[in-house]
Design a protein around this nucleic acid. Structure first.
Length: 530
RNA sequence: UGGGGUGUAGCCAAGCGGUAAGGCAGCGGACUCUGACUCCGUCAUCGGGGGUUCGAAUCCCUCCACCCCAGCCA
């Protein structure tokens, strides 16, 4: 077995072999070539990680090249967002920022060179005629009648195209109205790679069919021998990963914007609270291959939880409050409990939590008629208040409609920091002192679509009907412990027993902080309960 | 129907002729002032069929399935 290739994906195996063979003097230069016509998503993250990491691992460099050949679809707004997202992901391209539009002069000269070599001509066919003569999947096309024009005529026509004699074309967001003609992807990408000395041009499978053309241009124009390699693009379950579809969600206002926390865009994930490192971990976990793949959202979620579990300070927040009065606790009395900010990392310090006679617990933590395996609160039952006392539900007070209004409980004063005597209390629930409760608003997010592979198969034309109507649930009656006032944007918290949350800088106000739920905690009770 | 790709567990993915890594999910258990975390254990004979070989997921033949391609998009 080839030990050098062991464990490496096929791209890295190729790069390693090329270096060993001293191709391109052992240089490795890759590139990430986004078209600035939309926001980057998790699929792009895979490409970014691949290109930047391969370059780094083999001592090379990775260029950022805006593939801006199409003047009608691109905007500088997107280019700015792309730069910001790549940096946020944790990669830098240094001075290697390029634009295909900067190569328009070179590309024009290359076209002239091909004409001069008798390898290209100016066609007068219109779109419809071209379509008719192109052939089909099974029948070859026919040559254009203009194919045999003289070189002189071609040169003249091409020059006149350039000067706008046949139409001015659209103004370009960077080159302005300098050009009346623009190169297509096929005529621009390979040559741009070659101009930059890209050694390994990595792209997705659908470009494999273009490789012969890619190589033909390089060969006929005698350019640097960039080579193209294709790998399969990423698909994530219960979401869509095509710029066109994401754009549509934004345009139709089915989501708030490109950075809606439900979007699989990097901007959306950042706002949702996904740490960039979690995304990098995810990209390396899914690997690189050529087989079509749909990745479970659980893989991404696990990466996020792994990251956040280590770094996020804990806090208590009651999502759906249920009032509890500790009847045997003096009115007006207040105690301050100390709780670790992180159970496994004492160096993260401790925080103070006030306790009083009236508190809130989560409605989910109380059941009137609990099943055997439920070890939270119920009539006559005991439960531990996280970081506090063990309490016992003595009485239930109801609303007129029969729903639970409030709980009257007693507490065991000997259980602060100590196990109750003579019995075991397995349940532990979070709570917040009513007098100190900070009102907060919380967005709970779930999968954007109800079907696992939206936009494919039966869902191809009806994918918008498959949106999950409950992808965002907003709770505006939540209460959190006082320390939450210090929350800052981008700071992740674990609301114990609920999940990981982060402040939404766009929606929070001085009075009411707004939190986005990044991801839930694993919940084996939810499984048992099903 | 032509061309280009891919088929290893529910989802990814190693494997490169010497007797199936790892991750996620699942299941069982331990621990626990988060039903979290952590920790144990469990979970495949490689799309089908032939063949070559002492030996095949790996080589050959054949069949099947799925994906991509008929924009002057990328």
């Amino acid at each position: 077995m080839n030990t050098e290739a062991a464990g490496k994906d096929f791209i890295r195996q190729i790069v390693a072999a090329d270096i060993k063979a001293n191709k391109s003097d052992g240089q490795v230069v890759t590139r990430f070539p986004p078209e600035p016509n939309g926001f980057l998503h998790i699929g792009h993250a895979k490409a970014i990680c691949l290109n930047f990491n391969v370059a780094h691992e083999f001592g090379g460099r990775c260029h950022l090249r805006f593939d801006d050949t199409n003047p009608v679809k691109e905007e500088t707004l997107y280019a700015d967002a792309i730069r910001r997202d790549i940096e946020w992901l944790g990669f830098s391209w240094g001075n290697n920022e390029f634009y295909t539009s900067d190569y328009f002069d070179d590309l024009y000269r290359m076209a002239v060179k091909l004409i001069e070599k008798g390898l290209a001509y100016v066609d007068d066919l219109n779109g419809e005629q071209i379509r008719e003569m192109r052939g089909t999947l099974t029948e070859p096309g026919q040559n254009s009648p203009y194919r045999e024009r003289s070189m002189a005529e071609n040169l003249d026509l091409f020059e006149r195209m350039r000067t706008g004699e046949f139409g001015n074309g659209e103004p370009h967001h960077r080159s302005g109205d300098k050009w009346c003609i623009y190169p297509m992807y096929d005529f621009a990408h390979g040559q741009s790679d070659a101009l930059e000395g890209i050694t390994h041009s990595l792209c997705t499978l659908e470009f494999a069919d273009h490789r012969p053309l890619y190589e033909w241009f390089i060969e006929k124009l005698e350019l640097f021998p960039s080579r193209q390699y294709e790998y399969s693009r990423l698909n994530l379950g219960y979401t869509v990963l095509s710029k066109r579809k994401l754009q549509e969600l934004v345009t139709r206002e089915l989501v708030s914007a490109w950075d809606d926390p439900r979007m699989p865009t990097l901007a959306g994930m950042r706002r949702r609270g996904f740490p960039p490192r979690a995304i990098r971990t995810f990209c390396s976990r899914v690997g690189i291959s050529k087989s079509d793949s749909w990745i479970d959202m659980s893989v991404l979620e696990d990466c996020v939880r792994q990251e956040l579990n280590e770094s996020a300070p804990r806090a208590m927040c009651v999502l759906r409050p249920l009032k509890v009065t500790i009847t045997d606790y003096p009115e007006g009395k207040e105690e301050t409990f100390s709780a670790p900010n992180h159970p496994q990392q004492p160096e993260m310090g401790e925080r103070s939590i006030p306790f009083t006679r009236e508190i809130y617990i989560d409605q989910d933590d109380f059941m009137l008629d609990p099943p055997k395996k439920f070890f939270r609160l119920g009539p006559g039952r005991e439960v531990r208040l996280r970081n506090g006392y063990v309490i016992k539900c003595e009485e239930v007070i109801y609303h007129a409609d029969g729903s639970v209004k409030e709980l009257l409980c007693s507490h065991d004063s000997a259980t602060l920091g100590a196990a109750p005597e003579g019995r075991k209390v397995k349940g532990v629930i979070h709570w917040v002192s009513a007098a100190h409760a900070v009102p907060v608003k919380v967005h709970l997010y779930d999968r954007l679509f109800e079907v696992e592979t939206p936009g494919t198969g039966a869902s191809a034309d009806t994918w918008l009907d498959d949106l999950n109507p409950d992808s965002r649930i907003t709770l505006d009656q939540c209460v959190a412990e006082p320390g939450i006032r210090e929350a800052r944007p981008a700071q992740a918290y674990q609301f114990e027993r609920c999940g990981y949350f982060c402040l939404d800088a766009q929606q929070s106000t001085e009075e009411v902080p707004v939190f986005n739920r990044t991801v839930t905690l694993r919940d084996s009770w939810a499984k048992v309960n099903k």
